[in-house]
């Protein structure tokens, strides 16, 4: 496997993404909105007790796992369905490129910008949160171990899951919006988890995060093999719709 070829593929996709306003906006606006919006929610409610603030901050931290699932959705749909729409997969597959190099290139193209934007967003979130809550909490709350675990472990795993699912969805649909919508449906379990955290039914700790990350890892491995089977040149040119 020649990784530089995957980088050539990813680099080409980056050039295309830069020209798509929808992608640029979704990459910048969504993380920015969440990273500024969530601390503001806390700042607007002056009646919140320190305990309530802790519950909300934990739940908000979890939101980054959801964001890591949502954000690559648009990019990976564009990355693969875009090739289908432009009929560019055939000449691409005719080059001395393995299916693995192509798949890896497509994964990098969606993964890197999203994870980078999430990390940038999380820095803003942590800074604003500490600024707003310092007086109430009496300490710098973020970053903490939970947030570190989320950013370094759960966020990449969640992004990979989103990309793999999009590859599978892309083999069945020819429309970027449909692929987006189908991909988004699959994040309902994440929202359910978020609701449990906000309601303080489940608390966010390293053990829970480990279980969540393990579940994501198992799903990643399962969908990796499934997407690898689907992302096969013979199937792309004869069975993909």
């Amino acid at each position: 496997m020649k990784f530089w070829k995957s980088w050539v593929i990813a680099n080409k996709d980056f050039k295309i993404f830069r020209k798509k306003k929808r992608i640029i906006y979704s990459l910048i606006i969504i993380p920015l909105f969440i990273s500024i919006g969530l601390p503001l929610v806390i700042s607007t409610d002056k009646t919140m007790s320190t305990g309530d603030i802790m519950v909300f901050l934990n739940a908000f931290s979890f939101f980054y796992i959801i964001l890591a699932y949502i954000l690559p959705n648009t990019l990976s749909s564009y990355s693969i369905i875009g090739e289908k729409i432009e009929h560019s997969l055939e000449p691409l597959l005719a080059t001395p490129l393995t299916d693995g190099e192509l798949l890896f290139g497509k994964t990098i193209a969606s993964f890197l910008p999203c994870v980078l934007m999430i990390y940038l967003g999380s820095v803003i979130f942590m800074f604003l949160t500490d600024l707003i809550t310092y007086n109430n909490v009496g300490q710098i709350f973020l970053p903490n171990w939970n947030m570190a675990f989320i950013l370094l472990c759960a966020v990449p795993l969640s992004s990979l899951l989103s990309i793999e699912l999009n590859i599978i969805i892309s083999s069945k649909v020819n429309d970027i919006r449909t692929a987006n919508q189908l991909g988004i449906i699959l994040f309902i379990p994440f929202i359910a988890m978020y609701m449990l955290l906000v309601s303080n039914i489940v608390s966010l700790n390293i053990l829970n995060l480990f279980v969540i990350s393990l579940a994501l890892l198992i799903l990643d491995i399962f969908f990796f093999f499934l997407s690898k089977t689907i992302f096969h040149r013979d199937k792309i040119l004869t069975k993909w719709k």
Partner: peptide, 24 residues
């Protein structure tokens, strides 16, 4: 290969299209 559908990248310039394939 020149396929039936040319399959060029509409959002890239003519030069970038050729440069991309030249690298591959």
């Amino acid at each position: 290969l020149l396929p039936e559908n040319v399959g060029l990248y509409n959002d890239l310039s003519a030069y970038d299209n050729l440069d991309f394939y030249g690298k591959l």
